[in-house]
């Protein structure tokens, strides 16, 4: 129950700080830009619109995570607002869970609003058949952002906002290339192969959530893929948040 209250408050903070509104407006501007660039795509205007529209969701969502998520806990410690929460019957793990859930909900809100705008724009342009593909792609992007938020919250609980942003951005980029790393590991000799495989397994498998190319051609993925991605995201978030809670548990708030 307390996790829900903290999540609601975190969501309210994001709304009132106008971060989300700013991102949604920026997303609408990017969507409008795809219509300017459309004629240059030589007949692939719709594909370009879907691809750029979905990419803007990931980009803006990542921006929210880096701007807000990486200072989510650190800011509360620095401003001492955390004193008023943790001196109540609120376990530190519940506090962390609430902060993560609140920011994740904010990101789902941004992704949902921009996904709906993308679908509405395509419908107005006479291509209403992309609804299922966009819905699935936005769902997977929401999962991806939720996972990256968990990483940001973990780093925020143990480090400064600047370092947290660097670590989170680094893991996001490395996670995008973890398939390449896995392929590279197969060609590497002996112990280096094992090491690279372990690193590739520990890094977040973000290509699992990338359905932009498929959605751009109006295709949908299998229910098994959606189920696997959902289970993977939840499990990964669970592990990361457990690490974050353990780190926060041992902290002194001076």
């Amino acid at each position: 129950m307390n996790a829900v209250l903290i999540a609601q408050n975190t969501f309210r903070e994001a709304i009132r700080d106008r971060v989300l509104a700013g991102m949604v407006v920026a997303g609408f501007v990017l969507l409008a830009f795809t219509q300017i660039a459309g004629p240059l795509a030589m007949g692939e205007g719709v594909r370009l619109t879907v691809d750029l529209g979905l990419s803007s969701i990931t980009f803006l969502g990542l921006l929210v995570v880096l701007l807000v998520g990486t200072s989510l806990v650190a800011k509360e410690i620095e401003r001492r607002t955390i004193f008023n929460l943790l001196s109540r019957p609120v376990p530190r793990s519940v506090y962390l869970l609430g902060k993560w859930a609140g920011l994740s909900a904010s990101l789902w809100f941004v992704a949902g609003a921009l996904g709906a705008a993308l679908w509405a724009m395509l419908a107005l342009l006479g291509h209403p058949g992309y609804a299922a593909a966009i819905l699935e792609a936005v769902y997977l992007q929401g999962l991806e952002l939720t996972l990256v938020t968990a990483l940001a919250v973990l780093f925020s609980a143990i480090s400064t906002p600047v370092l947290s942003a660097l670590y989170t951005a680094g893991l996001f980029l490395a996670g995008q290339w973890c398939d390449d790393l896995r392929e590279f590991a197969l060609k590497a000799p002996g112990s280096l192969r094992t090491l690279l495989q372990v690193v590739a397994d520990v890094l977040p498998n973000l290509p699992l959530f990338n359905m932009r190319t498929l959605a751009a051609s109006g295709e949908v993925t299998s229910p098994a893929h959606l189920g696997l991605a959902t289970a993977y995201a939840l499990l990964y978030c669970g592990c990361v948040l457990a690490l974050g809670a353990a780190a926060l548990e041992s902290r002194d708030f001076r």
Binding site: N9, R12, E13, D17, R79, T81, F83, N84, S87
Partner: peptide
């Protein structure tokens, strides 16, 4: 132990958007 505790920290800070 904190269920029936009321605590006021020194120079309290709050969520300023509320």
């Amino acid at each position: 132990s904190r269920r029936s505790l009321g605590f006021l920290p020194e120079q309290p800070y709050f969520y300023d958007y509320l």
